[in-house]
Design a protein around this nucleic acid. Sequence first.
DNA 1: CAGGATCCTTATAGATACTG
DNA 2: CAGTATCTATAAGGATCCTG
Lengths: 113, 113
Amino acid sequence: MADSTPTTCDADGTCYCPLASVLDTLSGKYAMGVLSIVDAHGPVRFAEIERRLPSASASTVSTRLKELRETGLLVRTQYDEIPPRVEYELTDDGKDVRGRLDPLLDWVTETER
Amino acid sequence: MADSTPTTCDADGTCYCPLASVLDTLSGKYAMGVLSIVDAHGPVRFAEIERRLPSASASTVSTRLKELRETGLLVRTQYDEIPPRVEYELTDDGKDVRGRLDPLLDWVTETER
DNA sequence: CAGGATCCTTATAGATACTG
DNA sequence: CAGTATCTATAAGGATCCTG
């Protein structure tokens, strides 16, 4: 991910950033799902995210969480207990982006069901 | 593309459709770029889309156009002239989806520039 | 519990060459 | 002009095993 696709701009001033970091991150498999789950149920633990995304493997959930963290859309909080507990929740940016996904997700549910 | 990822629903009624057809289509590289170009400059010819996406190969543009057509977001019109001329433009669904991308794309431009 | 490391398979994109 | 077919390279995801 985070490839080298440049932002391309036209002579007329129109610009396209097809894979700018956030869009890039969101394009990962289950990224929107993870974002939605953490939004709806956060603070939420790893196992619960996994449980709510049965078709995603643990390593995929892990990768998505890492990317979303690196993009600044969510934060990880670790509690030093035994057994260890970790919770995820959205940052303000994460909530912002999540909200901006609504029109699109609405379209999908309106259309597909 | 169009993999077998199922729609997953929680006991509490919340549903996630991470890769429903439209989102799936939009996740292709340059898909949003092609959609934006056809929206902004349509009816537009193949060569012009290519010109406006210098970093995408012709075969990728071709693939994206095909997928967007199959998802019903744009239409292809062929004129039987010599040399041949083909034009692409958005369907009503395409315009709808394109509009729903705005909040997200706005966020990107607000943030990255 | 939370996940990193590894290996493997599949998806996806790019290059090149060629057609209606 | 507007593609498509084919091939290759790479990226992304999944399964499994292992650890702090």
